[in-house]
Design a protein around this nucleic acid. Structure first.
Length: 853
RNA sequence: GCGAGAGUGGCGUAACUGGUAGACGCGCUGGACUUAGGAUCCAGUGGGGCAACCCGUAGGGGUUCAACUCCCCUCUCUCGCACCA
C-alpha cells in the first residue's frame, strides 16, 4: 500500500518532535569548533513575508549543513521590536505598542516555526524588553563618559509624517526611508554618537572584510567618503579676517579666480551690504537645491595667498556649510561647476593645468595644442596675457591631472607631485594645513517618539546635563501614556516620567524625553544572542574571561538584505569598535562573512501590497508544505540574485518531493530488509554500479556546490538528477537482487541526508520510514569516495579545427598517444581529414582531441 | 558624473582554473493510462535545413588549435552615491 504524501501532516509531526527533543538548543563548548550563523532579525510587523522567508530559509540551510558537518552551530532568532509602526497602531487603534508588538511576535514566531527553521529559541532577543534595552542605555552611558555621545544643536533631517528626526543614512533621495515623505531640515538639540571618531578605522577595516560582497564594501567606503586636501586661508582685502577654504586640488590654487561661501557661513552677515540682504535671503531659500546654481557678489575681495591676486568673494547656494569649511576657492578652468558659474557671472578663467603629453584635450579645442610653446614659457612668470587666447578656446573645464603651468615656482610639476609640494609650502608658510575630510556625519540618535529606548539623561536646573547613574538603569518606559498622534512624544505629557531629581545635587530635574534610534538596538543584538535567555548582567558577563561571547563571536555567516549596506552594517561595526575600546571584547569586526540575498520579485517587480503581486508564504505552506516552499526558493535562483517567483515553478519542486516519496514508499520493504553494506563493488551489475557511482558523484557535487558560495540551486539540481536516476534504476531492476537492493538503499539514504538541510521534514519522515532512528538532524553529512566517483569510461570529444566532429567512448587511464591514435583512426575523422596534412593534434586528458589540419 | 554589477532558448537558470553551450526545473509538442484530468508515466524540445551540414552566449574587433569564459571598443539594463569643492 502506498501512503500518500501529505506534507502538512509530516511537517507538524517533526516540528513537534524537534521542539520536544530540544534538538536546536546549543551550548558553548570549547572542545568543539563553532559556527555562528545569523540572519537579520525581523521587525514584528505582523506577518512574515516572502523576503523574510527566503532570508531565513537560506540561513537555515547553512545552519543545518554546518551542524551535520560537525560544527557546534549557534543559530538564534529575535525581534527588532521597537519602532514606529507599533506607535502608529496605538494611535490608530488604541492598542498599547507593547501589546501590539508582543501579539505580532507571538504570531510570527509560529510562522517561523511552521517553516521548520532550526532556531535555538532559548536565546530569543526582544529589543523592547527592559532587560534588553537596559544595555542600550548602558552603552550610551559608557559612550557619554568617553565623549562619544554628545548633544548639539544642529540642522537635522525631519520627517513631518513620522514626526521625528532621521539619521543621514535614513534619508533616501531626500525622502524618509520608512514612509517616503519629503524630509525637511529642522534645527534641534540632538544626541549624537561620534561614529566619525572611527572614520579612518571603519574605512581601513573595509580591507579586512574579505567575506563581504564587493558592492557592500564599496558602498561603505563611498558613504564614509574620505578625501584629503588642504585648508588654506584667503585674507579678505580691507578687513582683518581670513576665509578658510578646503580643497582637494591644491595643485589648481593658482587658478582660483573667485571664492564662494555657503549662505550660512558665519562671515556672510558681515560681508553682504545692507542693500543686498534681500538677495541673500533669496539665495538662502535656494540653498541645497540642485537645479540652479546661484551666486551673489559681496563687494569684497580676497587675496589668493599663492599669487596675491585680488579675487571677488561670492555667496553661492551650492556651497555646503556641512562639508569642509563651508567655503571654497573656485577654479573655473579645472572644475566644471566653477566653469559654469564663471560663465554665468562673467568671471575670469585661468588655465593652470595642461594635460600631459598628447592626450586628447577635453575642454581645449583640438586645433590649439595645449602644450603650445608660449604657454610653457609663460608658466614661469604667471603672466595672464599670454593665456588670453587660450581662454577663448575653452568650452568646458579640464578636470583631469596634468602639468602645472602659470603656477609660479610649481610650474612644470605633475599634479600629484604639485599637490604634495604645495601642501608642504602652505604648512611651512603658516597659511593652512593638510586635512582629511569625511562625507559621513555623526550618528544622530534622538527620536521624538515613545516606542524606543529612553535616553538615560537628566537635565538639572543647577548642574545642567547629568547622566543617569548606572545603578538606576534601566530607565523604563512608562506604560500609562496617551497616544494622541498630535505632535510630540507622549513622554512629554507623562509628568511621572519627566519629573525627577538630579542624581548629583538632588534638586528638581527633568528627564530627557527623546528615545534612541532603533538602529542602536540592532547594533549589538548578535552579542546578546551569545548568552542564554533571562536577565543577564552584560557588564560582568563581558568582563568574564572565557565568556560565551569569546567562544561564539564573531559571526561566521551573516545573511540579510542589501538595504542595510550602510545602515545597520556600518553601525554594528562602529559599536564593536567602541566595545573593543571599552575593553569588553577582543575583536574589531562583527561579521566574518556576509551574504546579501536578492529580492523576491514577481512580474518583474518587488513584491508589494500596492502592486498587488504579493505571494504569502502561509498560503504556499498550506498548499504545498514548508519543504516545497523551501526547496523552490532555493532552487529558483542562487541566493545573492533576485528570485523571480513562479507559481508553476513551485509545483515543480512539489512534484519532485512527491516523486521521491513515491519511490521510497514503493520500495520501503525491499529497502528495509536489505543488508545495507555493499562489500565489494565488483559484484555490482552495470546498472547498479552506475547508480552507486552517481550517488558518490552527487554527494561530491552537492557538497562542493554548498561550499562554493552556497550555490543551493545547483545543489538541488544535482539531487534531482540523482533521484531521476534512482527512479529509472528501480523501475528497470525492480530492486530484485540483494546487491541491487543494497545499492538502492544506499542511494536513497544518501539522497535523504543530502536533502535534509533543504527539506528537513520529508527527509526525517522517509529516514524513519526506512527503519532508521530519528533524528536525521543528528546524522553526519555523508562522504564520497573519489575513486568511485570517477567515471570508468568517458566520452572523448574529437574536434577538427576546433569544431566538434565526432565522439568516442574510451576507458579512463589510457595514454595520450593511444587516445590520439584512436581519434585519428575514427572513421568520421578519417573522412574529414582526407588527404590533408595534419599540422598538430592537441589532446586534453580525458576530455577531447583537436586535430588541426 | 563616480562606483559596483549584469546581458546565454519561450521562461527561471547551468557550464569549477579557456576544452562537448543550454545541466536541472518550468512551459510547450506528441503519445500512454483514464469517464475525466490542471494527476501520473513515456518520448521530443536553441534556430535553420529532407539531409550532409550551417548558424547561435547583447553587437563589433582581437588573442588562441579551441572563447559564454581572456583583451579592446560599442550598446543596453540594474543597483548604490552624487552640487563633497
Amino acid at each position: 500500500m502506498e501512503e500518500r504524501y501529505i506534507p502538512q501532516k509530516v511537517e507538524l509531526k517533526w516540528q513537534k518532535y524537534w521542539s520536544e527533543k530540544g534538538l536546536y538548543s546549543t551550548l558553548a563548548d570549547p572542545s568543539k569548533k563553532k559556527f555562528y550563523c545569523l540572519e537579520m532579525f525581523p521587525y514584528p510587523s505582523g506577518e512574515i513575508h516572502m523576503g523574510h522567508a527566503r532570508n531565513y530559509i537560506i540561513g537555515d540551510v547553512i545552519a543545518r549543513y554546518k551542524r551535520m558537518c560537525g560544527y557546534n552551530v549557534l543559530h538564534p532568532m529575535g525581534w527588532d521590536a521597537f519602532g514606529l509602526p507599533a506607535e502608529n497602531a496605538a494611535i490608530k487603534h488604541g492598542v498599547h505598542p507593547a501589546q501590539w508588538t508582543y501579539k505580532n511576535i507571538d504570531y510570527m514566531k509560529k510562522q517561523l516555526n511552521r517553516m521548520g527553521l532550526s532556531y535555538d529559541w532559548e536565546r530569543e532577543v526582544t529589543t523592547c524588553s527592559p532587560g534588553y534595552y537596559k544595555w542600550n542605555q548602558w552603552f550610551f552611558l559608557k559612550m557619554f563618559e568617553r565623549g562619544l555621545a554628545y548633544r548639539k544643536n544642529s540642522f537635522v533631517n525631519w520627517c513631518p509624517s513620522c514626526a521625528t528626526v532621521l539619521a543621514n543614512e535614513q534619508v533616501i533621495d531626500e525622502r524618509c526611508w520608512r514612509c517616503e515623505s519629503l524630509v525637511v531640515q529642522k534645527e534641534l538639540e540632538q544626541w549624537f554618537l561620534k561614529i566619525t571618531h572611527y572614520a579612518e578605522e571603519l574605512l581601513k577595516g573595509c580591507e579586512e572584510l574579505k567575506g563581504w560582497p564587493e558592492r557592500v564594501v564599496s558602498m561603505q567606503k563611498n558613504w564614509i567618503g574620505r578625501s584629503t586636501g588642504v585648508e588654506v586661508d584667503f585674507r579678505i582685502d580691507g578687513m582683518d579676517e581670513n576665509i578658510r577654504i578646503f580643497t582637494t586640488r591644491q595643485d589648481t590654487l593658482f587658478g582660483a579666480t573667485f571664492v564662494c561661501l555657503a549662505p550660512t557661513h558665519p562671515l556672510v552677515e558681515r560681508l553682504v551690504p545692507e542693500s543686498k540682504k534681500g538677495d541673500l535671503s533669496k539665495l538662502k531659500e535656494r540653498y541645497g537645491r540642485m537645479d540652479e546654481k546661484m551666486g551673489l557678489f559681496t563687494d569684497f575681495y580676497a587675496i589668493n595667498p599663492m599669487n596675491n591676486e585680488r579675487i571677488p568673494i561670492f555667496i553661492a547656494n551650492f556651497v555646503l556649510m556641512e562639508y569642509g569649511t563651508g567655503a571654497i576657492m573656485s577654479v573655473p578652468a579645472h572644475d566644471q561647476r566653477d566653469f559654469d558659474f564663471a560663465q554665468k557671472y562673467g568671471l575670469p578663467i585661468k588655465v593652470v593645468i595642461v594635460p600631459e603629453q598628447k592626450s586628447s584635450a577635453s575642454g581645449v579645442s583640438s586645433h590649439t595644442p595645449p602644450l603650445s610653446p608660449p604657454l610653457v614659457k609663460g608658466g614661469n612668470g604667471g603672466v595672464d596675457s599670454e593665456l588670453q587666447p587660450m581662454n577663448l578656446e575653452l568650452t568646458e573645464a579640464y578636470e583631469g591631472e596634468g602639468i602645472l603651468v602659470n603656477s609660479g615656482q610649481f610650474s612644470g610639476l605633475r599634479s600629484d607631485i604639485a599637490r604634495e609640494r604645495i601642501a608642504q609650502f602652505i604648512e611651512h608658510k603658516g597659511i593652512g594645513i593638510s586635512v582629511t575630510n569625511y562625507k559621513f556625519r555623526d550618528w544622530g540618535i534622538s527620536r521624538q517618539r515613545y516606542w524606543g529606548t529612553p535616553i538615560p539623561i537628566i537635565y538639572c536646573e543647577r548642574c545642567g546635563i547629568v547622566s543617569v547613574p548606572e545603578r538606576d538603569i534601566p530607565i523604563v518606559l512608562p506604560e500609562n501614556v496617551k497616544f494622541t498622534g498630535k505632535g510630540g512624544s507622549p513622554l512629554l505629557e507623562s509628568e511621572k516620567f519627566i519629573n525627577t531629581e538630579c542624581p548629583k545635587c538632588g534638586s528638581r530635574a527633568r528627564r530627557e524625553t527623546d528615545t534612541m534610534d532603533t538602529f542602536v538596538d540592532s547594533s549589538w543584538y548578535f552579542i546578546r544572542y551569545c548568552f542564554k535567555k533571562g536577565e543577564i548582567d552584560l557588564d560582568s558577563e563581558l568582563r568574564t574571561q572565557n565568556s560565551e561571547l569569546s567562544y561564539w563571536m564573531p559571526v561566521d555567516q551573516y545573511i540579510g538584505g542589501i538595504e542595510h549596506a550602510v545602515l545597520h552594517l556600518l553601525y554594528s561595526r562602529f559599536f564593536i569598535k567602541v566595545m573593543r575600546d571599552l575593553g569588553l571584547i577582543g575583536f574589531s569586526e562583527p561579521f566574518q562573512n556576509l551574504l546579501t540575498q536578492g529580492m523576491v520579485i514577481k512580474d518583474g517587480a518587488k513584491m508589494s501590497k500596492s502592486k498587488g503581486n504579493v505571494v504569502d508564504p502561509n498560503h504556499m505552506i498550506e498548499k504545498y508544505g514548508a519543504d516545497t516552499l523551501r526547496l523552490f526558493s532555493l532552487f529558483a535562483a542562487p541566493p545573492e540574485k533576485d528570485l523571480e517567483w513562479s507559481d508553476k515553478g513551485i509545483e515543480g519542486a512539489y512534484r519532485f518531493l512527491k516523486r521521491l516519496w513515491g519511490i521510497v514508499y514503493k520500495n520501503k520493504f525491499e529497502i528495509r530488509n536489505s543488508k545495507f553494506e555493499i562489500n565489494n563493488i565488483s559484484n555490482l551489475q552495470t546498472s547498479a554500479m552506475s547508480l552507486y557511482r552517481k550517488t558518490h558523484q552527487t554527494i561530491k557535487r552537492v557538497t562542493t556546490d554548498i561550499e562554493r558560495e552556497y550555490h543551493f540551486n545547483t545543489a538541488v539540481a544535482g539531487l534531482m538528477e540523482l533521484v531521476n536516476e534512482i527512479a529509472s534504476f528501480e523501475s528497470k531492476t525492480s530492486a530484485s537482487g540483494g546487491e541491487d537492493r543494497a545499492t538502492l538503499r544506499f542511494a536513497v539514504e544518501r539522497v535523504l541526508l543530502l536533502l535534509s538541510p533543504f527539506a528537513p521534514h520529508i527527509a526525517e519522515e522517509l529516514w524513519e520510514a526506512l527503519g532508521n532512528t530519528p533524528s536525521i538532524v543528528e546524522q553526519r553529512w555523508p562522504d564520497w569516495d573519489e575513486e568511485v566517483a570517477k567515471e570508468e569510461r568517458v566520452e572523448l570529444v574529437i574536434q577538427v579545427n576546433g569544431k566538434l566532429r565526432s565522439r568516442l567512448l574510451i576507458p579512463v587511464g589510457i595514454s595520450d598517444d593511444e587516445i590520439k591514435e584512436m581519434a585519428l583512426q575514427e572513421q568520421k575523422i578519417k573522412e574529414i581529414v582526407g588527404g590533408r596534412t595534419i599540422k598538430k593534434v592537441i589532446v586534453v586528458k580525458g576530455k577531447l582531441v583537436n586535430v588541426v589540419i
